[in-house]
Nucleic acid binder design. Structure first.
Lengths: 133, 133
DNA sequence: TGAAATACCTATTGACATGGTAGGTAAATA
DNA sequence: TATTTACCTACCATGTCAATAGGTATTTCA
């Protein structure tokens, strides 16, 4: 599995925020209920999004999260990479993978590389706005 | 991670067999050494390939495996699906996943479906012969 | 005919990721 | 002051991955 719940839930929450943008700050309790997700789990995911300025959080009563930019300025690829770590479908391509000594002669590596590129390109060409339609 | 070692090793072994096709039956001991893979692990992978007639195995001294068809008749997608199980990048799409009750209204599902299709299409359009070049 | 080499079979294991849960603290509002 | 919220840290159950271990059955070759 390449896309886990972390990335998928992050996307769904952001999408929820996007669709209710006019409501201002939205409590995760509300989103959790609407999306039928665990509040605690969402909170963990939002921490990352908040620290990377994908959302703005306000504590206290009446607080919550809201998008930091326009839906059209969120690329799905960025969201997934942030939530999941890297969007790498094959271990050989991980950035911290010690270079395989067979890399020079490996007949499959080019295929994996092209695939990797295709995957990222696919998700980078979809925005939150696209998903709202 | 979507493509694990099982699929990648299966591919490498088949590719090795393809490139040494004229040698007849090739012992996995040889391939394991050439590819720097664990013999025991390869054996487990080959069992599946053998049962599905991707390779023909002969026991005993001088035995080994050989391809059952021409390299051009092996699709990478088929090999990966056989070794890995399914080639599904997102859990919602697994065939045994109980249908999500949000599926009808889910705004992300179409994206996952298209992605899933793209992934399979990509690997189904590559053959062993392509990789040999 | 016996030794060696091979595919084939079953069980086990350590490490790690996944998908959460639990239990709080800090800040803001009503 | 009570309540609501984001924010923080720790923990845990489960499953998958990537092998390893130890054998058996079959075939060839000397």
């Amino acid at each position: 599995m390449m896309i886990s719940t972390r990335g998928r839930y992050a996307l769904r929450v952001l999408l929820d925020l996007a669709e209710n943008q006019n409501e201002g700050y939205i409590a995760m309790k509300t989103v959790a209920h609407r999306q039928e997700l665990s509040l605690k789990y969402i909170e963990r995911i939002m921490t990352v999004l908040s620290k990377n300025h994908y959302v703005e959080g306000v504590q206290g009563k009446g607080g919550g999260y809201r998008l930091a930019r326009e839906p059209k300025d969120y690329r799905v690829g960025d969201i997934l990479r942030l939530a999941e770590g890297e969007l790498v479908p094959v271990a050989c391509l991980e950035c911290n993978a010690k270079t395989c000594k067979r890399a020079d002669t490996c007949k499959t590596l080019p295929m994996w590389k092209e695939f990797h590129h295709m995957v990222n390109h696919y998700f980078d060409n979809i925005t939150l706005l696209d998903l709202m339609k």
